[in-house]
Amino acid sequence: MTDMPSRQEVLLDAAIAVLGSAGPRRLTHRAVDAAAGLPAGSASNYFKTRDALVNAMAARFVEREQAIWATLTGLVVPRTPAELAVALAAFVRRAVEADRVMTIARYGLFLEAALHPEAHRTLADSAREIRRFGAQWLRAVGAADPETACELILDQMDGMILHQLAYPDPALDLERRLDTVVRAYT
């Protein structure tokens, strides 16, 4: 049995959805209330300012993103660089398709973090944790320096995801590109 999300979690998930579907200018308390299906004033009861909303949203986003990575690394155990490339390509594809709104919110939070020190710390801490997950995979496929390799590969993936969001190329061979990137670092 799964726990029902708290009212605060519902509001933060709605805020993530607003950011990912309407952009940072539309991220208002009123828009969050509407997206959550809650009465006007609900979001401002929990988050008095937009800064408070952004900081709490970053923490909720991190919670959700780390759960995804923990599940993924528990389910997928690549044994070769080619298998790792296939798993990473599937992740990129999901990020730009099924999880598109969440992914756009992620990049929106990156921009917000540049202006909000608390959100910056939250996202930076999460990035370190995600690199730890990824380094496990790289260690398993024989990378000499899995931590550095993971950071560089994730940077490449971020670029691929951003490009596929901004100007999608349906012919892009993600597996081939990521195989090239993974093999460069293993």
Rank of each mutant, 00 (worst) to 15 (best):
G20F: 02
S21V: 04
A22M: 14
A22P: 00
G23I: 05
G23R: 11
R25T: 13
L27G: 02
L27V: 05
L27Y: 15
L27F: 11
T28A: 03
H29S: 06
R30T: 06
R30K: 03
A31Q: 06
V32P: 09
V32G: 03
A34W: 08
A36E: 03
A36G: 01
A36C: 03
S42I: 00
A43K: 00
A43D: 05
S44T: 09
S44Q: 13
Y46E: 11
Y46I: 01
T49C: 06
R50Q: 15
R50E: 08
A52F: 09
L53T: 01
L53A: 07
V54R: 00
N55A: 08
N55V: 08
A56S: 13
A56Y: 04
A58P: 05
A59D: 12
A59N: 13
R60C: 13
R60L: 09
V62Q: 04
V62H: 06
E63G: 05
R64W: 15
R64N: 14
E65R: 01
E65V: 01
E65I: 01
A67D: 10
A67L: 12
I68E: 15
I68A: 03
W69Q: 03
L72A: 06
L72K: 01
T73F: 08
G74E: 04
G74F: 12
G74Y: 11
G74A: 05
G74M: 10
L75H: 03
V77Y: 15
V77D: 12
R79D: 13
R79H: 11
T80D: 14
T80A: 09
T80Y: 14
T80I: 07
